[in-house]
Amino acid sequence: MDDIPLIFDPVTGHYHRITPAGEKVLGFLDGTRTRDDLVAFFSRADRIRAEALTRQLDTFLASLEHSGLLEGSPPPTAKNAGTGRRVRTSMLMPRVVITRSLPTLLEPVARLLRALPAGLLVLLAVLGAATGYGLGIHTYLTRTPALQDLAGHAFLIATAVMPLIVLAHETAHALVAQYLKVPIRGLGVALLFYFMPVAYVDRTDAYRVRGRSARVVLAMAGILSDGVLCGLVALTALNSSGLVRDTTVFLLGMQFFLLVVNLNPLMPSDGYTALEAATGQANARDRAFTLLRHTLARKPLPEHLANLGTGARRAHLAYALASAAYVCFLAYAMLHAIPLTADFALAVVGR
């Protein structure tokens, strides 16, 4: 990733970022040398250098063992180890994999798209999405009837159609990943923070993509797809009336809500992932919450966080606190939205 070396663990499916110096040391960890052998080799009989190398090597080896990467060390998350499990519960997000067949289904399409210039494909997608969102905003502002007129069948139909739009969103991510030859691991559904249902594609292997721009496009693919679909829904609303118009207006509202959620940097969203890819900051959110947990529990910081500067530490803590507060707000809002949702549904039967 960005020419930064990564260790891939095939047992857990996780990637571990290391330094170029660590990458050189890995080549010597073949089971034939002890720690002292390595110190002697790298220090070349320089006693002062050997003392420094001993401390550095001990830290590096301890980090590898803690991550379960040394032979004989147990994986840190044994209950979720392996990429073949259909149900997983890590990262505050219980997940169920529905299918792993998308790479097979999408490869013929990806093969055709690879024959076209990548820049042209991105340009067309951006123009299509921008046009679609613009048309959708215009339509929503000019064609939306009174809220009470939208209750009933339009709400139920729009709710039934919305999962298809979400499926198209996730398929767009999968298609770009397939185009980049890093197929997704699975398509599934999850319960984010144990209360928010979401669909997802596991694109962990995007770390293998070297260029930042390609990873940004992969992160934004779903939002670009939503923009094109938003334009199609808006055109339908502009050229219809009655139930069809009401349903498509409802769909537009749901799509704009989905856009806000997907762009929100306080969530593990597409917008956050795109920012992470653009800046080269891998796993910044995880580092922020790890720092917050250890600070609140007054526990020693992990090695990769112990050397953070004061400014960086404050920024990470501020982000973690803001994100946690936002999640609490979302839970509160979803709880209070239940009565309104029930009213819309009951309007179908005239109650």
Rank of each mutant, 00 (worst) to 15 (best):
D286T: 07
T248N: 08
G22H: 05
P197I: 09
L301K: 07
A50H: 05
L243H: 01
L57S: 09
H16W: 12
R88D: 05
R49S: 09
A199G: 11
P163C: 11
S101N: 13
S240Q: 02
M93L: 11
H173W: 06
D3F: 06
P300L: 05
F256E: 10
A342M: 11
I157D: 06
R86C: 01
G72Y: 04
V182I: 13
A347G: 09
R285F: 07
V166M: 15
L120S: 13
L61S: 09
A325W: 03
T159F: 14
V261G: 06
L218H: 10
L150Y: 04
L305I: 02
N239S: 10
D343H: 13
L180Q: 15
A219I: 08
L296S: 00
L102Y: 14
M196A: 13
A62D: 15
Q56S: 14
L243V: 00
R86N: 07
E51S: 13
L116P: 00
L120E: 06
L156T: 13
L167I: 15
R55G: 12
A347C: 08
F344Q: 14
L301V: 02
E107F: 04
L259D: 04
R55Y: 07
V249F: 00
L29K: 07
N283M: 10
F193M: 15
K181F: 05
A288C: 03
Y200H: 09
A277R: 00
Y207I: 11
N262E: 08
S63E: 14
E276N: 02
S67I: 00
F329L: 15
Y332F: 14
R49N: 12
L243D: 01
R210L: 09
L187P: 05
F256G: 07
V260Y: 01
A322S: 15
A306P: 00
E170D: 12
L266W: 02
M220R: 05
D58H: 08
R85K: 15
R210I: 07
R203V: 15
I98E: 04
I4F: 01
R111M: 05
L26C: 12
E276S: 15
L308M: 10
G227T: 08
L135M: 12
Y194N: 11
T59I: 08
L292T: 00
R293V: 01
A324K: 06
G186I: 02
R203G: 14
P163Q: 11
S73R: 06
L305W: 01
L224H: 04
L26S: 07
Y194V: 11
L218S: 09
L175M: 08
S43D: 12
T236R: 06
N283T: 01
V11W: 00
V209C: 10
A52K: 14
L191Y: 06
L218M: 13
R35C: 03
A78S: 11
L229F: 10
L317T: 02
F344G: 05
G132Q: 07
A50P: 02
L69W: 05
H336K: 12
L135N: 08
V39A: 09
T142P: 02
L124P: 01
Y332T: 11
G27K: 14
G350P: 09
V122Y: 03
A160P: 02
